[in-house]
């Protein structure tokens, strides 16, 4: 291994570590929203609670879609490390579509709640709900934009070391969002319906 190559790998591992630190601070941001939600989850101000608002099969579908997209994202990174450009594009394309489907379902749920008169101004519970789930949705949107940009970069420049590094960070981001969603699924939806 040449010295240039060693130096490059060292710089890359530092970049990835920096990105990891960002993800951990982002988890603190989500923790604040989770704490707010936990505190306000019974403050419905005479309005509907989660039990009447949420449809579990619908949310289960969302969860399975996001989980599958996380899986296909992992497979895409595996192909990227093996230098299979077409497979990478195909798998990230699949991840992108699954992410888009997830976002579509979430927006459908939001607009449904809003037009039924259960928007974020209805109660403390709904404000906390829209803040928490909406922030996750914004992250997903950012991830999708990033993914679209990376797919065009890979298409034009190929799997260069630079692109590979950025794809690795994108996959970390995407897996991270899936983990956050597991907790939203559990805390907001499952517990919201169970109690």
């Amino acid at each position: 291994m040449s010295r240039v190559e060693t130096a490059r790998q060292e710089a890359e591992s530092k970049t990835l570590f920096g990105f990891w630190v960002y993800l951990m601070t982002d988890s603190v941001l989500f923790a604040s929203f989770f704490a707010t939600f936990a505190v306000l989850r019974n403050s419905t101000y005479g309005g509907p609670s989660g039990e009447t608002l949420f449809s579990l099969p619908f949310v289960l579908a969302e969860t399975l879609i996001l989980l599958t997209s996380s899986f296909s994202c992992g497979l895409a990174i595996l192909s990227a490390r093996q230098g299979q450009k077409n497979r990478v594009l195909w798998l990230f394309g699949l991840t992108f579509l699954l992410g888009l489907a997830f976002l579509g379902l979430e927006l459908h749920e939001f607009s449904h709640l809003y037009y039924e008169g259960n928007g974020w101004r209805r109660s403390g519970f709904l404000s906390a709900f829209f803040s928490l789930v909406g922030t996750h949705g914004l992250h997903i949107t950012a991830g999708l934009i990033w993914m679209a940009v990376m797919m065009s970069k890979v298409r034009s420049a190929g799997l260069t070391p630079f692109n590979l590094k950025r794809l690795t960070m994108l996959s970390l981001f995407w897996h991270f969002l899936d983990i956050i969603w597991i907790f939203i699924f559990t805390v907001v939806y499952l517990l919201g319906v169970a109690s």
Partner: peptide, 27 residues
């Protein structure tokens, strides 16, 4: 080999199937 750094096909399948079943059990 670079595979050990980013996991293997096997580890992704294991993770996927475990997550899937944990989600379905919770549901």
């Amino acid at each position: 080999d670079k595979d050990t750094k980013s996991g293997t096909l096997h580890s992704y399948w294991t993770g996927y199937l475990l997550s899937l079943s944990l989600t379905l059990v919770a549901f």
